[in-house]
Amino acid sequence: MIALEAINVTKIYGTGTNAVTAVNDVSLSVRRGEFVALVGPSGSGKTTMLAMLAGLLKPTHGQIIIAEKDIGRMSESKRTKFRGQYIGFAFQANNLVPFLNAQENVELLLRLNGKLNRQSRESARNLLERLGLGERLKNRPGQLSGGQQQRVAIARALIHEPEVVLADEPTASLDTERAHQVVQTFAELIHEQNRAGIMVTHDLRMCKYTDRVIQMMDGRINRIIADRREILRLAGAADELDGHVVPVNGKPVLAGDPLADVRGI
């Protein structure tokens, strides 16, 4: 069942001669229980695409359908309310409210949606325990490591049973081991809870936990990899390169680069 659908979405910043097309006529859909990676070099339009899918940015043209509603047509206040109900977020940084402890941070979305009760509190606790934070429930973000903070953010993104879960570079500030742990758990939960998940990432090694990889280039979808073996080959090759992309003259280049096709070289 389709949880999220983008139809001919375009985003143009500025007007006239200053106009820049960040996303150009992109269509994609994500099913429930599917975890998709959105990859591509800087400036490819993936963050703009994610912002539009999240209802944080209105598309210039096209439709974004979540829960059978076109969020691009909603007013600012309706979109804000919609985000609280139907979308879960994990950002690159500044994910958590610093004065709330781990459990309170997770419960924030339950409170916002008027769903905070004994049962939902128990669910929040269980989710955090599942994420290995059972001993850290009462710790505030400042007392948690980067990986622990990201896991709390993931719990918060999922606790209110949203239609779509979005993550923007969730491993950017984590070491390799933590990054794998975080994304693996994220993927497991998306599959278990039957949510639609999209993750924007630069680290192609993380693609191995996803069901589909959508590569963007210059505002368009350049390639979609849905074959499991292809995805693993991509992630494996990236693993050999330690996840690094080597830019030369502004373009990532490597002799015999197995990722060249994905990078669009």
Binding site: A54, L56, S77, T80, K81, F82, R83, G84, Q85, I87, F89, F91, A93, N94, N95, V97, P98, L108, L109, L112, R156
Partner: peptide
């Protein structure tokens, strides 16, 4: 600023 931005992004109204 970042914290408020995050709160608005996850659905808190103005």
């Amino acid at each position: 600023v970042a914290q408020i931005g995050m709160l608005k992004a996850i659905g808190l109204s103005n």
